[in-house]
Simulated scan of single mutants.
Amino acid sequence: MSGPLQWRPVLPSASTVTAAGFSAEAPEAALDALFLPFESGGLRWPADGRVLFLRARDGQRLRGVAGRGWLCQQSFRPFAGALERGGLRVGEPGADERFPLVLLLPPRQRDEARALYARALRHAEADGVVLACVPNAEGAKSAEADLARLAGPVRSLSKHKCRAFWVALASATVDRGLLDAWRALDAPRENAAGYFSRPGLFAWDRIDPASALLAEHLPDDLRGRVADPGAGYGYLAAQVVARCPQVEAVDLYEAEARALEPARLNLARAVHAAGRAVEVDVRWHDVTAGLPRRYDAIACNPPFHQGRADLPELGRAFIAAMAAALVPRGRLYLVANRHLPYEATLAARFGEVRTLALRDGFKLIAAGSVRA
């Protein structure tokens, strides 16, 4: 590969993706390390400028090198929005689309990461390069070993406590059987509780105990249209269908696009089991941007962290969005870790706030009488 990129000017960046506190702070250390092989001369940019960046994250470092031939893939809606606002082309590659260079920032969950390596190889040209970067604290050595296991010997460089590692496919020895097996890791599958899920989703292989607590206390007199913001693979919404026979419609909102297919499968199964017509809508959506409909009730286990960092302002932003979406006599049922300081936010938005249950470090709160 040879030839320069068409350079894009660096644009100013926002410090947050949403008012909720999803960090839009670019992973500049990881991006710096990712591009180190080009700075050191170990790699050259594709002559035609075509690059696929899987799980791309916005940042000045990225916007300084990305050209018109780049395609940035990102399944988490707030991060995708940050890339779009940075002037980058965001989307999904076609099934048969191939690139001379595929970049990726592998996730922490190992099966999810292995499926992403397999996807990267599928979208790389036969003589292309696959380049990944992982922080040392997030398992860089294991991640590098996985790519080597799949495609043969890799080269690597380290910077800023991150490791960049890559394979040139022209000389690679790809294990085709392992490639197929790892590609299949991302397919929706039933977890131990019998719900469709996939690796990397929140509580993907089980029922989250906080959500289970909320489900147990769902009143059977809920009616009309109900929302489940931050729905994940759809457990709570499925429980609403099963336990609340007067509910006519359920809307699921989830920022992680990988959760949408399992959620649709779980809701279709729940509606069939209920034996009645229930309208279901599953949307890829950042809840902190507001909800597009009004609801008679909302059941929610809101996210409160990004990675390992607690972001209680994220839950508070969910509360604000949900209060704005409820009809005047609407009801909110919210479950959260006991230590999270949501009471003041709830009291400011609702005339009635009650703690229904405390268990295993979680609190279940019911709120009504929305304040104008």
Rank of each mutant, 00 (worst) to 15 (best):
A19V: 09
P46Q: 03
P46N: 06
L52I: 00
F53W: 01
R55P: 02
G59M: 12
L62R: 06
G64F: 14
V65M: 06
Q73H: 12
F76R: 12
R77P: 00
G81K: 06
G81M: 04
G87N: 05
L88P: 05
V90N: 09
D96W: 15
V102W: 07
P107S: 08
R114L: 02
A115W: 12
L116T: 02
Y117E: 02
A120G: 12
A132S: 09
C133D: 04
V134K: 04
N136Q: 10
S142Q: 13
A143M: 05
R149H: 00
S158A: 15
K159W: 00
K161V: 11
S171Q: 08
A181G: 05
R183Y: 03
R183N: 03
D186R: 14
G200A: 08
G200H: 03
F202V: 13
D205G: 05
A210L: 06
R223W: 11
R225A: 04
A227N: 08
A227K: 07
D228E: 09
D228R: 06
P229Q: 05
G232I: 01
Y233V: 14
Y235L: 13
C244S: 11
P245L: 14
V247T: 06
A259W: 02
A270L: 13
V271I: 12
A273N: 11
Y295E: 00
A297E: 04
I298W: 14
I298M: 13
L314W: 01
R316A: 11
A317C: 12
I319S: 05
P328E: 08
R329N: 09
R331D: 11
A344E: 13
E352D: 10
T355H: 01
L356A: 13
L358A: 14
D360I: 12
A367M: 07
A372M: 12
